[in-house]
């Protein structure tokens, strides 16, 4: 396990180095005037814009709203996706009936849902819940269905020989076996969730990062726009860390197993 900790620290170290390199390149481009400063402000100008928004309080409230929407969205979408996958595993006819519906809804981009969702659900939390869940539910669902279907026959027969019922086999064998793949889906879903929230806020919101971003862009406050883009990127990291923490709890064995093989 010590080796894994070391690898993790190394990964963080590498991330910080990459980040520093990007900042250096950015600042050089800005200082050399390769791109008009109007569209490409220096790091210092972006930092000043960031500071102004923190002082005015608008950044913190927007960030809290967006992040909580995205987290709540991915959590409920994951629970729904896993439940649907379990239902599909228990009732194959449900899975077959649901497949064309899923295939039809899944490719719809979040932005395309916004106009009708606004008419039907107004501008409140229901709008966000609807849009985020509708676009985020699919990776956990599809990964769950595939993983539950591919649990080894030997494991299932072992459960049957031990006298377990179908439900017990699902609960005690198939779900734990499927967890690593489900979490790969949740990880993907968490970034989709963030995108969906920001898009919905941009198109129909009256608060949140997406709304603030549009407002700053229309006011031509370019450094602030860049600062907000940076905050969106950090949110991605926060979501990823949260999902990884849960993955350690529910599918950590697979990571330890892979760590040992490496």
């Amino acid at each position: 396990m010590g080796a894994f900790r070391f690898m993790e620290i190394l990964a963080w170290f590498r991330a910080i180095i990459s980040f520093l390199i990007i900042i250096v390149i950015w600042q050089s481009i800005a200082l050399l005037g390769l791109v008009p400063e109007k569209y490409f402000p220096s790091i210092l100008a972006i930092a000043a814009g960031f500071r102004d928004m923190v002082i005015s309080g608008e950044l913190v409230s927007a960030e809290l709203r967006t992040l909580s929407r995205a987290l709540l969205g991915v959590a409920s979408a994951s629970l729904l996706g896993i439940s649907l996958a379990v239902l599909g595993d228990l009732f194959p006819s449900f899975r077959r009936g649901f497949a064309p519906i899923a295939a039809l809804i899944q490719p719809v981009p979040p932005a395309a849902l916004v106009p009708m969702a606004v008419f039907m659900l107004g501008l409140g939390p229901k709008l966000y819940a609807f849009i985020v869940i509708l676009v985020t539910v699919w990776p956990p669902y599809f990964n769950g269905v595939a993983a539950l279907a591919s649990v080894s026959d030997v494991q299932i027969r072992t459960g049957q020989m031990l006298g377990l019922s179908r439900w017990q086999i699902l609960r005690q064998i198939k779900l734990p076996a499927a967890m690593p793949e489900i979490f790969a889906g949740i990880r993907y879903a968490s970034s989709i969730s963030l995108i969906a929230v920001v898009v919905a806020e941009m198109l129909a919101g009256h608060d949140g990062l997406g709304f603030l971003l549009i407002r700053k862009a229309f006011a031509i406050r370019i450094p602030e726009v860049y600062a907000l883009m940076f905050v969106c990127a950090v949110n991605g990291l926060i979501m990823n860390t949260a999902v990884n923490g849960l993955r350690w709890r529910f599918a950590g064995w697979q990571l330890r197993m892979a760590g040992q093989a490496a």
């Binding site: 030997v154 494991q155 734990p176 076996a177 967890m179 599918a251 064995w253």
Partner: peptide, 9 residues
């Protein structure tokens, strides 16, 4: 197939 009969978790 012992490796798939035992539960790795």
């Amino acid at each position: 197939d012992y490796s798939r009969s035992l539960f790795p978790w």
